[in-house]
Write a protein that binds this DNA or RNA. Structure first.
Length: 584
RNA sequence: GCGCCACUAGCUCAGUUGGAUUAGAGCGUCGGCCUCCGAAGCCGAAGGUCGCAGGUUCGAGCCCUGCGUGGCGCGCCA
């Protein structure tokens, strides 16, 4: 219905512009309403600046809007609200366009960076947020016409690789590695960190008061010195170390791919941190040349000031005093690369909210370097467990695959209970689709900025506002249509228009509006909310009215509404990365 | 010390970016509905000082200020 609200908004703005001689283009917004089909609050919003009474403006709007073919009547209510009632005939005629989306992204390229797991660490339940939310945003942006580049910015570089190489050579358990390489790598890493801590304590606490020398080789724990040496060799291209590093990446990617396949998540490119290695020195040089970076205590930093950058941010470190680079350097290099290579007008990066400061810093630096693209940090709240923060150290990781396994298992049990006619193979397939959907929807349906506390029962719930509810509505519709075919009823023009049918129609027509809002705000939960309301509206309609057992003309119309609902549900769920089933 | 995010029903969350005398869902609780298109469902009930106090205006759960609680950040990790 976006097209209609836009038309009405334009019409209203033109009328006011003509009446008062002030250009008000774009100032009249048409909203949904509980009291009417649509409403307009512009009269009150604009009254003050025009020095007119809201009533006066409302009179103009009422007259202008009433002339549109879709509008049956208009009236003024309260302090100056304009209520708009639409013709039933118009709604019936236009409901078939519910699935068409304005291509607001046409001609634009957006790069979206999500998932981005760390190599050599298993994916656990917290990784699902970036992965699932990012993938849904990607699908929505594509649906509204953007050329989308989905980029998995792997954590495949950095100091941890020196540690891993040392630990691998010292303590590798071959058998464990061949059975589950990533778990073994995690064990090795933890073992290293434990030893490092031990040695540090043995060295005494004098390091605290002597920060100047902390980086000096002499005072660091021996094991850490070894790791640093291996890291330097790796960075210099030492064959053996590079081979090991590549091996870590390969085994990790194999595991990631397995998870992505189960989740139906995909990327266009996988450009990890290491991809930008050869661009870091020149990035720092560029910052220096532009006068944006300066030396400070041996390091190179970018400073910000309120007048130029809009806020007084802490400095961003781009080169350590030992010459090494940091992830801020990589991020800036990545931004420049993405803008140049793809000529992207939007860059979206999906990470948890702890990194907000970092993103504001590096976005500000990019702006100073002339990046014109819209840079958006799409952040989400951290996931925690009821007993506290998820941490590798505490060993309370819940593996992502374990979660998916359990989800499928529970959904399979329920599928068997609910539908005895299904074969075992069907039950397993349904359990798979429904279980994965439940996990995804659980994450997608909450505003991404809220902190979530993970519990099995919530994450795997199958009733109420969940994916299975939506899938169930779809399955019933599929069943209806099949029965309609048997009975010789096929979808046709809407004949009757009971209140529930009208409400369902209005809901269907809101689809394009919601999708556009998600594309602009990167908040998929709005689509979840909408689909849930749509399914609920359908369920009411279905409970209240007979579809196939009404008069033929009425049946055809109701079947059409059901079919459109099914189409929108399937399309909406597809945009969330969730599948549907015709039987469950 | 500075900054970011949150605070809405017993619990988990929405609230269309400032709109309408009844602030909405789900779970849980209580009560109805399978002889009739799929009960993973439908209908109804109970449940609220929107963290607290001020402010802005025609109008505030939403914006501003202060405070409280929780979580997370703040130069050589990512």
């Amino acid at each position: 219905m976006l097209a209609l609200t836009h038309e009405l908004g334009l019409r209203g703005a033109n009328a006011l512009t003509q009446a008062f001689g002030v250009d008000l283009t774009g100032k009249v917004i048409i909203d949904r309403s509980q009291k009417a089909d649509l409403q307009c609050a512009a009269a009150m919003q604009l009254a003050k600046s025009l020095k007119r009474s809201p009533r006066e403006l409302a009179e103009v709007l009422v007259k202008a809007l009433a002339e549109h073919v879709a509008v049956k009547s208009t009236d003024i209510a309260g302090p100056g609200f304009v209520n708009i009632h639409l013709h039933d005939a118009w709604l019936k005629q236009n409901v078939g366009n519910a699935l068409s989306l304005r291509q607001i992204g046409a001609g634009h390229t957006v790069v979206i960076d999500y998932s981005s797991p760390n190599v050599a660490k298993p994916m656990h339940i917290a990784h699902i947020r970036s992965t699932i939310i990012g993938d849904a945003i990607k699908r929505v942006l594509r649906a509204v016409g953007y050329n989308v580049i989905a980029d998995n910015h792997l954590g495949d570089w950095g100091t941890q690789f020196g540690k891993l190489i040392v630990a691998y050579r010292k303590w590798l358990d071959e058998k464990a590695f061949s059975e589950n390489p990533v778990v073994e790598l995690l064990r090795l890493y933890i073992k290293f960190v434990d030893l490092e801590k031990e040695q540090k304590q043995a060295l005494g606490k004098k390091l605290d008061g002597d920060e100047e020398d902390e980086g000096a080789a002499g005072d660091a724990p021996p094991i850490l010195q070894e790791a640093r040496a291996e890291l330097v060799k790796l960075q210099q291209g030492d064959d053996e170390n590079v081979a090991l590093w590549q091996k870590f990446i390969d085994v990790s990617m194999r595991e990631f791919e397995r998870v992505y396949k189960r989740l139906d998540v995909s990327f266009d490119v996988v450009l990890g941190e290491s991809f930008y290695n050869d661009k870091l020195a020149s990035t720092v040089q560029l910052l220096l040349d532009r006068g944006l970076a300066e030396e400070s205590e041996g390091a190179i930093v970018v400073r910000f000031d309120k007048a130029r950058d809009g806020e007084a941010l802490a400095p961003l470190l781009v080169r350590k005093k030992d010459g090494g680079f940091l992830y801020g350097t990589t991020d800036i290099a990545g931004m420049l690369y993405r803008v140049q290579r793809w000529n992207a007008s939007r860059i979206i990066i999906v990470t948890d909210d702890r990194q907000q400061l970092h993103f504001r810093q590096f976005f500000a630096a990019c702006k100073q370097l002339g990046v014109k693209a819209s840079m958006e940090h799409v952040f989400f709240g951290l996931m925690r467990l009821p007993e506290g923060t998820i941490s590798t150290r505490d060993g309370n990781l819940i593996g992502l695959e374990a979660l998916l396994d359990e989800a499928e298992r529970r959904a399979t049990v329920v599928a068997k209970e609910c539908n005895a006619e299904l074969t075992d193979a069907e039950t397993v397939e349904i359990g798979r689709v429904v279980g994965i959907a439940a996990v995804k929807y659980n994450d997608l349906s909450k505003d991404r900025t809220t902190l979530v506390t993970f519990t099995w029962d919530k994450a795997l719930s199958l009733t109420g506002n969940t994916a299975p509810y939506l899938q169930y509505a779809y399955a019933r519709i599929a069943s209806l249509i099949a029965k309609g075919v048997d009975a010789g009823v096929s979808p046709g023009e809407l004949a009757s228009f009971e209140p529930t049918e009208r409400a369902l129609t209005m809901k269907l027509l809101a689809f394009d509006d919601i999708v556009e809002q998600v594309a602009l705000s990167s908040k998929p939960h709005m689509l979840c909310e909408y689909l849930y309301e749509l399914a609920a509206q359908f369920s009411s309609f279905y409970g209240e009215l007979s579809v196939l057992k009404a008069e033929p003309a009425v049946s055809a119309g109701r079947l059409r509404l059901a079919q459109l609902t099914g189409d929108v549900l399937a399309k909406g769920l597809e945009l969330l990365g969730i599948g549907v089933l015709s039987r469950m």
